[in-house]
Amino acid sequence: MRIRSWVAVIAGLLLSANLWAAMPILKGVGGDFSLQSSLGRQVNLTDFRGKVVLMFFGYTNCADICPTTMAHMSQLMDRLQPADRSRVQVLFVSIDSDNDTATHLNQYLAYFDPSFIGLVDSQDKIDAVAAKYHAEYVKLADSTVTTVYKKLTLAGEATDQQGYLFSHTAKIYVMDISGRVRGYFYMGTPHAEMQSQIEQLLQE
């Protein structure tokens, strides 16, 4: 009985370590793009070939899902082995072209992980990238905002404008080392699952 129990435990561990099937390549979603970045230069998706890219559409004035998702990804990065960590790139695409700047994004993302890169550009360019990724978002009119969020003043600029909200997708797009969309993570995706999937993608 004792041996059987050990066998069951080991089998369970093996299965739980590799419980998640390989992520399929999602067709009709994604594609290359070129946007201004928090690095102070234009960034292309092709710059990250050989890395797993985790991409999120959000905005720095977001009070809930964006910071919690960024924190979730920051914790994920801490779990990864250094060799894997250097081959994972988090991209935060700002959907708030009116207010987010490269400097602002840099300060915001550094709070979570200095390796995260923010992307912000003209609304047309952001819209085109969001369309490629089927990333839906819409700015809610101020009148519909019932809670006033005070804009972060990371760049030192004073603001007296009323709070605003975006309704936006909460997906974290997972792209493989060839830049193909392989699936999505969410704020609620367990770190163990994310880590296992990333490790599988890095081995391809």
Partner: peptide, 15 residues
């Protein structure tokens, strides 16, 4: 036309 692949709707939280 291509649609966004169906994912776990319960996990699709929006703010």
């Amino acid at each position: 036309t291509y649609l966004a692949p169906i994912t776990d709707a319960g996990a699709e939280v929006r703010c």
